[in-house]
Write a protein that binds this DNA or RNA. Structure first.
Lengths: 189, 189
DNA sequence: GTCTATAGAAAGATAGAC
DNA sequence: GTCTATCTTTCTATAGAC
């Protein structure tokens, strides 16, 4: 396996971006503890030493991935109107799976003794608070957490057990059911 | 730190049980990858070498922990009547948190490349199938997976973000809300 | 700006003494 | 039946060559 010393013209910015993107995708699949810097570098097409070079450490890279992720209102939108249908769509549409990477990163890294703290802080800042702003009303944070719990649960279930059903007819009815559940989650207490 | 060579009279059965119990508790908190055999042995009050001695490997110990865990119908009961209230109670009652350890083990270990497969198989056998038996009707497996997703989501949310609220009044209304959501999850499609 | 080589730490597993 | 000592692997991080 001979190495051509990197085809990409030397460009710190591009290299850094490539590492960040690779880390984002890999952390979503395996979580902080199950992904190595070698693997990240390999996917980004660069050398492993550059990860430390540009981000300081794996931990700091992970924090940067969290910061670069979408905020809750990017995921669910900022309009309360039609929110439940939109999100139910997002959860079941295989085309949109990329949008759920940020949820998977949370899910798969929250048990880590190193990354766990950052993950927990990030959930509040990036998801619960924006959710609460969008849904408003009394006890908005409680209802926002409940909404977040539903999204987490559905995401992890699909990741671990596969899609709920292959039958388009069933999926359509399921989508409506999930929309109804989400409506119940955000309804004033 | 001088070591008294184990107070417990030499008893393979008791030692094995102690290791299994310690592993169960620790895997629930940290997941497969974040818990070492040294840590498990320490909590069990035995030497680390005995883990391999009695279980073969950490991986086999984990599989044994999965097998020894509760089945879905132990958690939700086998009566459809009153199920949603019972489970909502279980999710929010801090006294019952121990019952949710099996859910946390799933949650915190599913990303592991080693333990992930066993976890995924276990979800179906131990949770979705019993759930489907209890709730019955058309598309029982789809609805069972949806019920499981709700339980997973609420569990992980409480683990990562803390309890939804400290106010007993709010918690009571939230419990009712969760019961309503669960009812919607298992309702015929 | 990128890569090679390696230091240093931590974890799982095992042989053999007691 | 239990514990000590150690082997092997794997991973992060870094110094220094190119």
């Amino acid at each position: 396996m001979t190495k051509e010393p990197n085809v990409r013209r030397r460009d710190a910015g591009a290299t850094k971006a490539a590492i960040l993107e690779a880390a984002h995708a890999l952390f979503a699949r395996g979580g902080y503890e199950n992904v190595g810097v070698r693997e990240i570098a390999s996917k980004a097409g660069v050398d492993a030493a550059l990860v430390s070079r540009y981000f300081g450490s794996k931990e700091e890279l992970f924090a940067e991935v969290l910061r670069s992720g979408e905020r809750g209102d990017d995921v669910i939108g900022s309009e309360l109107d039609g929110l439940t249908d939109r999100v139910a769509d997002l959860m079941l549409d295989p085309e949109e799976k990329k949008s759920l990477d940020d949820i998977l990163i949370i899910l798969n890294s929250c048990a880590s003794p190193i990354a766990g703290r950052a993950v927990r802080d990030s959930i509040n800042e990036r998801f619960h608070c924006p959710f609460a702003s969008v849904i408003g009303g009394d006890h908005a944070m409680v209802r926002a957490q409940l909404l977040g719990a539903m999204l987490l649960g559905i995401s992890i279930s699909q990741q671990t057990s596969g899609d709920f059903s292959d039958d388009p007819e069933v999926r359509a009815r399921l989508k409506q059911r999930i929309a109804d559940i989400l409506a119940l989650a955000i309804k004033p207490l």
